[in-house]
Structure formats: C-alpha cells, structure tokens
Amino acid sequence: MSARAMTARRPVRRHVRRVAVSIVIVGLILALILGLALLAPWIAPADPTRQVLMMRLKPPGTLAANGQLYLLGTDDLGRDLLSRILFGAQVSLAVATLSVLVSTLVGVALGMIAAWLRGWVEVAIMRLVDIMLSIPAVLLAVLTVAVLGPGFFKLILVLGLTRWPRYTRVAYGQTLQVANLPYIKASELAGAGSARILLRHVLPNIAGPLLIIVTAEFGLMILFEAGLSFLGLGIQPPAPSWGSIMSVGRQYVERAWWIVAFPGGCLFLLVFSVNVMGDWLRDRLDPRFRAR
C-alpha cells in the first residue's frame, strides 16, 4: 500500500458526468458486440456449421420452406450468415484481444528494457527488431504455422510474436526520452529500483502513444487472422471467424454481396469503436487532461 494509498482517485461520479455522448455510443456498440458474441450459443437462430445446400447464397430476409428465417441470408454452402457472424465474433474478438495482449507485453517489455539498460542489450534487441520488421509479417506467420501447425492458440502466439517489434520501437523511443528526465533521476536518488522506476514512472508516461498502437493493431489483428485463415493457416473450417467468412464471401461478392458486407460492417464498427475508445482512454489516463 504505502505510496499507493495516497494515489487514491477522486470519486468516480465526477468522471462519469464529463463523458461525451460519442463515448457513450461507442461504449454501447462495444458492449453490444461483446454481449452478442458471448450469448451466441443461445441467440443464434441456427447451427453455424450446418449446411443446407438447397439454400445456397440466399439474400437477407429469405424465408425457408421449413419456416426458418435467414435474416442476413446464407453463404455459399447454405449456412445461416447471422449465426456464423455471431459465432465468428467470438473467435475474432478472442484472437484480436489475446494476440494484441501478447505482442504488447513482449514488445513493451523489450523496448523499455533496451532503452533502460542500453549497451549490448539495446543493440541486441533493437537489431532484432530491425530484422523482424524487414521480414514480411505474413511470410513469418506462414513459416511459423508451417512449423507449429494450425490452431487457435498457435494462431495467437504467431500473431503476438510477429507483431511485437512495432511496440518495441515506440516503447524504446519513448523510454529513452523519459529516462533522462529529472523526475526519473529523482526516483533513482530516492532509492527506487529499476523495476519500480520502469513500472511506476516510465510506463504510465509512455502509455499514451502505446495505446494508439494497441487500438490500431487490434483491428489489424482481425484482418491478419482473416488472411491466415484464408490461407488455411488460421482457424480451420468449418469453424467461423469474421475473417474467414469475408475471405470466402469475396469470391461471391458479385452474386452475394451480403456475405462480405455484414461481417465487414461489424468489423468496421468494432475497429472504429476501439479506436475512439482508445483515444478517450489515453486522455483519461493523463492527469493533465482531467477535470481541474
């Protein structure tokens, strides 16, 4: 406790009152997507993998002979698109969240360590970053999957471990800047160890730019998952993910626009909301932008 006891935030209510309408809307969208994804097994109208070949490529609103309504239409194998999107949301959200988490942890830790320790550690880490960035990420992912084999957790590992260099670059540059400031020296003089200085004083002060990358990468990860799934290296069919639905739908875009349009729209809403939320959170985390 000790020092933390004194960092007690002011009452929460004061913050809530100042929240802008856009943040409320964006928050509701995120909550809705998350809620629908979690509730998919109960609210989905059909089994997302059940094929009805008679009902291939039916437009949204089609009513089947057995009374089933295909609210968002069907895909190329006659599967209910709404159900696939609902279940696909689970996969896409999980892959994006977990892979961003992995790459943030690895990338930020390495960047801060490189900038803090300098010397050969810095050279080793930052040259590795250069090497990683010079190899096309897809190639690296394909190679890794080829060695490890496909699978949900392997996919997260692959995405997480190929995307960390971006975080490292930013964390490294920001840490270099902050590490020479007098308040860091003052903490050193106060007797704080490296771990405490990095976590308590450096990390909060470099969190803003990092958060921007996190939100940008979040959307990218969903698309990456789609790309890898399309290549047969990610989520294995028939399991749905937004990415795999879209990559299949791409082939039929002239005859059945809905297969791409609906998951695409969901993806847009999700990424947009995450970005707006990220910007807001960055400002919120900075005491200088809080109410005076």
Binding site: A3, M6, T7, Y183, H201, N205, P287
Partner: peptide, 9 residues
Amino acid sequence: LDPRSTVGA
C-alpha cells in the same frame, strides 16, 4: 515531478 503520480506519492 512525474506528471502521472500525485504530489503525496
């Protein structure tokens, strides 16, 4: 002074 920590801290 660290802009992210309170004066007390």
